[in-house]
């Protein structure tokens, strides 16, 4: 199974294809540097730098194999010229994009208020549709069945299922969560048999255990440097 890894920097250029992580597809999100996986979930609320400028700078370093990675874009950036930004990504060889840092966790009044930015999963779907139009392959982080179905309805067929917030490693809870996530995945596959689903093996949920599941097409691990 091909794995994904959420990381803050693209792998250094190397010809060593025997490295254990060489077959992993990195999802590049430089603004996450130094954050734990849980802090990364809150990264859309941490104004520590310009996420998209940092992304572009990282991808433009010489020798980066941009065609094998996935670019993690802050879709809520109110100042970005979407079409130009997508064109720039394409120009430097990027083929795949995703939504991170993400507003998929906004709920209640926060979701309502942030929608005025606009920020939230609906806006991220819209953004990723534009990426598709620009001939970039979109993958979307989702945290619920509702979000997944909305993404599928919009034509996004690569989904990265986040297990949700506020979990502590607990074998019983993890078992229950696994079956819940499996049902969500089944529902999404039922909606679109062509869609691929990656499970985010969030360390705050699954601990250090390398959980494997048979219902996911791919697995995503958190690989940001401490």
């Amino acid at each position: 199974m091909t794995n994904l890894v959420l990381t803050d920097q693209p792998p250094e250029p190397s010809t060593d294809t025997t490295r254990p992580d060489a077959k992993n597809t990195p999802i590049i999100c430089p603004v996450l540097y130094g954050l734990t996986a849980s802090q990364s979930d809150c990264a859309i609320l941490i104004p520590r730098g310009n996420a998209n400028e940092m992304l572009m700078a990282a991808l433009q370093r010489p020798g980066i194999a941009t065609d094998t990675l996935m670019a993690a874009v802050l879709c809520a950036d109110p100042f970005i010229n979407r079409d130009k930004f997508l064109a720039r990504l394409k120009d430097i060889g990027v083929r795949r994009v995703t939504n991170w840092p993400s507003g998929i966790f906004f709920e209640g009044n926060t979701a309502t208020a942030m929608a005025t930015v606009p920020a939230g999963y609906r806006q991220e779907i819209e953004w990723l549709i534009s990426a598709g139009d620009a001939e970039l392959e979109p993958s979307m982080f989702i945290v619920s069945r509702e979000q997944g179905l909305a993404a599928i309805s919009a034509g996004i067929s690569h989904l990265i299922l986040h297990p949700g917030l506020l979990h502590e490693p607990d074998p019983i809870a993890v078992t229950q969560l696994n079956s819940s996530l499996a049902r969500v995945a089944a529902d999404l596959k039922a909606a679109n048999g062509e869609c691929t689903i990656s499970l985010y093996r969030h360390p705050s949920v699954f601990g250090n255990a390398r959980v494997d599941v048979d219902w996911a097409d791919h697995l995503l691990d958190y690989g940001v440097r401490a």
């Binding site: 859309i44 941490i46 104004p47 730098g49 310009n50 996420a51 920020a119």
Partner: peptide, 19 residues
Amino acid sequence: RLRSRGASSLSTYLPLRDA
């Protein structure tokens, strides 16, 4: 500053710059 640039006040939370 964000308002003066035409964005929502709520953009204050976003990673757009080292606040």
